[in-house]
Design a protein around this nucleic acid. Structure first.
Lengths: 351, 351
DNA sequence: CGCTAGAGTGGGAGCGCTCCCAATCCTCCG
DNA sequence: CGGAGGATTGGGAGCGCTCCCACTCTAGCG
């Protein structure tokens, strides 16, 4: 009955109440320095009294921006990834965006139809920037985004010289440290189960594996390398293959915890003890690693931190975009960070 | 150099090209029936040729809606939940929203500050509706949302007669089926580790446990009930307590997989075999359940389906809100669904 | 054959904000 | 003491869309 209808106060009302003009209120709200202390106080009081909150749609329309960024997750990939990974990314991203009062739009892309819809989204200027998770080597999405002139940051990269800004973890270091650790435990025949090699992360871990072997003076042997796909089943297949080819292996570096778990199952079925006969190291430090039997040694990535950095990098791009030319961007490239964060080996009973 | 600037086509341009007025284009875009077949075709052609996509901000401003809904996740809770749970909810929600061309805004609430910011969000009409995950009994957020007159749907409920629309799983049924299964395996001293009892889901599972005992003609014994908090550590503590009080127990129904895993660790440490000495059943059918040793029998909830239903229910509320009175809503309550979806027992080696 | 209903249509009037220009008021300098 | 220059300020002009009020044109009715 009383009903304050849709009655949110507007900028205009705040201005009236504060006894100033619309422009001045707008300046105060947006933190412009060109406002007298006096006016600023009056406006702030009025804002508080009225409980004024700016209307986003109006702002977006007038200011030609949205204060929102999209986090894009190709769904098929996501299934493969250790799931907590994705959640941790969200955590980091969300925290950083909240501080900047930006909205987080979550977009899962499952089908081609959804992909198209998303491309329309982008075209319709519905976000100020895009965060892309789990990109494959031949994923066209990053380029599409860039073609539209939208700020973007990838999680991971597609190749060594990724043209789009990215935040990655040190996959090479991960592989190297795992191998060095295993060698330090006295293992000599160290095998590896890789991820799908069209993912740069998988390639990096493999490179790290090789570098590690070289560093500790062990020979490389291609029979000790088997390709998986980051899934448990893939880990099983790869492990079976390895055992067949090299029955004498005494350690395995699996490029994901899930594959390590699959490998462990096969080892057990074949009567090999972990870590007695074969030491095992995974990557991700996922819950599965902690709960497997024996608990799995694993290389941890700073996932949440990656999310945070991604968001930060994106915000910086967006800010630069707005400040600089409103048109095409410079090729200065100062605002196209390539971040590689260090990983950490968590030693548990499996090695 | 060519640069189509920010030059997205506008409604006006489409109208010109199609040789009709703005109003007609708007009608076609929004699927109004009051348009001649001829005009409709002309507009559709112009839209296709120009690659027109409506500007959301303008639409939101003019239409007083946003075509976006928020999915709110109190972060502290989330930690407790089996993580895939949350992802599956997102999947369901996302799929359903995408079909309705609605945006999904993800909001993690960690601190009080973020909570306040979120309340401002709501007040600022930045979303058309809200989905709330993992509500505690005394959570004020649902009521706040309703006070603002915003459509809302909860995942789970705070009490038996939850005033806000919700989608829940059949927690009572979950507890009952677990107990009946264990009894069917010949167990007579069936204990339970509950979740935090200020969560209705936890209470429901406990009720189901009791109903199950009654159904199979076993006596209830409060010493066989221990309270956990859905975490692994909580499961450990509760299990230790149970063993102390009732060394003769031969089965445990844990209200979450994580607690079941904790319980298993304690059982093993105390030299009790699973399932030989003590059978174990969890809830969630999480990856942890599949990977634990032995694989854990668990009650599965249709999580993604819950997400889907939540979204659908919310969309319906939003539609009704818009269609009906634009002001206060009727008390007809037709649009306040209370959905309880069935669960399913997945039998594995632990029981 | 005039008149009344629609059906279909065009376009004015905003939605609430930002941008930006012109106006005002000081202050300081020659 | 006059004028230049900077600091503040008010408010017009949109941003692209929806809402809604006429208005035109038909078809059907008595």
């Amino acid at each position: 009955m009383s009903g304050r209808q849709t009655g949110r106060p507007t900028l205009e009302e705040v201005a009236t109440r504060a006894g100033v003009g619309r422009g001045t209120v707008s300046r105060v709200i947006n933190g412009s320095p060109r406002v007298s202390e006096q006016a600023k106080e009056a406006v702030e009081r009025a804002v508080a009294e009225l409980g004024y909150v700016p209307n986003r749609a109006a702002r977006a329309l007038a200011g030609n921006r949205t204060d929102a960024v999209a986090l894009v997750v190709p769904e098929t990939e996501n299934r493969l990834f250790a799931e907590p990974y994705f959640l941790d990314i969200i955590r980091g991203v969300s925290a950083e965006l909240a501080d900047a009062d930006m909205q987080l739009l979550l977009t899962l892309i499952r089908t081609d139809q959804e992909r198209q819809r998303f491309e329309q989204y982008l075209a319709a200027q519905r976000v100020d920037g895009v965060l892309l998770v789990s990109v494959h080597r031949d994923d066209p999405l990053p380029d599409l985004v860039r073609a539209l002139g939208l700020p973007a940051v990838l999680n991971g990269r597609r190749s060594e010289n990724e043209p789009v800004a990215y935040v990655d973890s040190d996959n090479v270091g991960a592989g190297r440290s795992a191998v060095e650790h295993l060698a330090g435990r006295g293992r000599h025949r160290i095998a590896t189960i890789t991820g799908p090699l069209d993912m740069f992360a998988a390639q990096g871990r493999l490179d790290g594996y090789r570098q590690g072997l070289a560093a500790v003076g062990l020979p490389t042997d291609d029979r000790l390398v088997s390709t998986g796909d980051f899934t448990e089943e893939g880990g099983r297949r790869a492990m079976a293959e390895l055992l067949e080819r090299c029955p004498d292996l005494d350690a395995v570096f699996a490029a994901s915890d899930l594959m390590a778990v699959g490998a462990r199952a096969v080892l057990r079925a074949r009567g090999r003890e972990v870590p007695g006969d074969v030491a095992l190291v995974g990557v991700d430090d996922s819950p599965v690693a902690r709960h497997s039997d024996p608990p799995l040694t694993s290389v941890r990535q700073p996932i949440e931190e990656m999310g945070r950095r991604m968001a930060r990098a994106l915000l910086r791009q967006i800010a630069a975009n707005g400040a600089g030319g409103s048109d095409v961007e410079e090729d200065g490239g100062e605002e196209r960070p390539r971040l590689v964060l260090p990983t950490e080996l968590i030693v548990r009973a499996s090695s």
